[in-house]
Write a protein that binds this DNA or RNA. Structure first.
Lengths: 206, 206
DNA sequence: CAAAAAATCACGCCTTTCCGGGATGCCTGA
DNA sequence: TCAGGCATCCCGGAAAGGCGTGATTTTTTG
């Protein structure tokens, strides 16, 4: 009997999965939570085999919750659940210890299969998710890590501040700001402010 | 007996709503579809009182589907269903004839209430959705209409083209491009490229 | 048709970015 | 200890953008 727990802030999703899993003999739903806090509280005194976890929760994002769970209870398998089929999200979840990634448009069969796969310690990725992951790593999407300062400057630029204003804000000289911008341009392979801001927003670098 | 139909590409959501509505005596689920095409086909020979409609579907967006439904069957009330609490989406759905907007984190009570309200011809907005709408219209979010040329220039700017490149692309002089940019700055109340691009992306002006 | 809105082009002036260098400490991990 | 990444600062010239103002032509629309 596989014990499944759900964390999702959408009542209909919880209800739907509950309803779907009820028909399955060897799967049992032991509980659910609509936020990270309740989930963590539950596991301080209970356990489960698999957690179906929405990546966006009201009080914490799925990535952090997943990391916490895997750190404290490595035996529990986390199966990420999301509407978004974005390489970045998927990658982050997998890096945080998730055993799989399931899109919410998955049907009953797929959900059950995913649960059975991850409970054995294997990895399950929705077909589309797998695709997104691949195309993400193999293509240009590859964003080099930015330093703390660079991120600060980038955020300020995206807010529309001029170099002078940024310099004042960060208590550094205008030249330094320019240096950071130059590095950002080089790292992100852009050549002006417009492309920089666009890339920053679209890749959630703020 | 209120007849409810669901259009959503997430099996769990359909299952969840079905399960929730089953317990309600005076509401009946008459069918569902996981895409716009099936939905339209269904209504060519059936009807319903309320359609719960996801705003993002695989083959068509909710806004267009809503418009189609209301045009052909004005008597059917459309209740938009979405994860996103964004003023733009909400506004577009309402403008397309939807009777309400429900967030997917709504509980059983709220869903049922919403259905009962819209079937009477009234409007139902999730609390949060109402807030987003208000803050959208009443605050600065108010975006004046842009002309065709302005949109073209804006798109080019967001792509990272320089004024010279834009001029070549649109077969106009650099001065004209600058004029359009000046107008954009004035209309959108920004003062540099960074803010312009950011605002353009965040308000889906591309 | 006549008024309004949009699109076009122009000039001058100043500010800001962009770019290619170079330089100096500081800290960390191999 | 020492290389390398990081953050800091500097210079100078070229390019692009921002701002005010004004003008002409086309298009839209009441």
């Amino acid at each position: 009997m596989i014990k499944v727990y759900i964390v999702d802030d959408h009542a209909v999703v919880i209800e739907g999965i509950y309803s779907l899993l009820q028909k399955e003999k060897d799967i049992e739903m032991t509980g659910y939570a609509s936020n990270a806090a309740n989930c963590l509280q539950y596991f301080s005194s209970h356990t489960a085999d698999v957690i179906l976890m929405d990546i966006s929760l009201p009080d914490m994002n799925g990535v952090d919750l997943c990391r916490l769970i895997k750190k404290n209870y490595p035996g529990i398998m986390v199966l990420a659940l999301s509407t978004f089929n974005q390489g970045t999200y998927i990658r982050k979840m997998m890096e945080s210890g998730a055993s799989g990634y399931l899109l919410k448009n998955a049907g009953r069969q797929e959900i059950i299969e995913a649960i059975k796969v991850v409970v054995k310690g294997k990895t399950y990725l929705s077909f589309d998710a797998g695709q997104a992951l691949k195309s993400g790593t193999e293509q240009l999407n590859n964003i080099p890590p930015l330093t703390k300062r660079e991120k600060e400057v980038l955020a300020a630029v995206a807010e529309g501040l001029t170099n002078t204003q940024i310099a004042e804000k960060l208590f550094i000289s205008v030249d330094t700001v320019e240096s950071h911008r130059k590095n950002l341009h080089a790292k992100l392979n852009v050549k002006n402010t417009a492309m920089l801001v666009r890339l920053a927003i679209e890749n959630d670098l703020l």
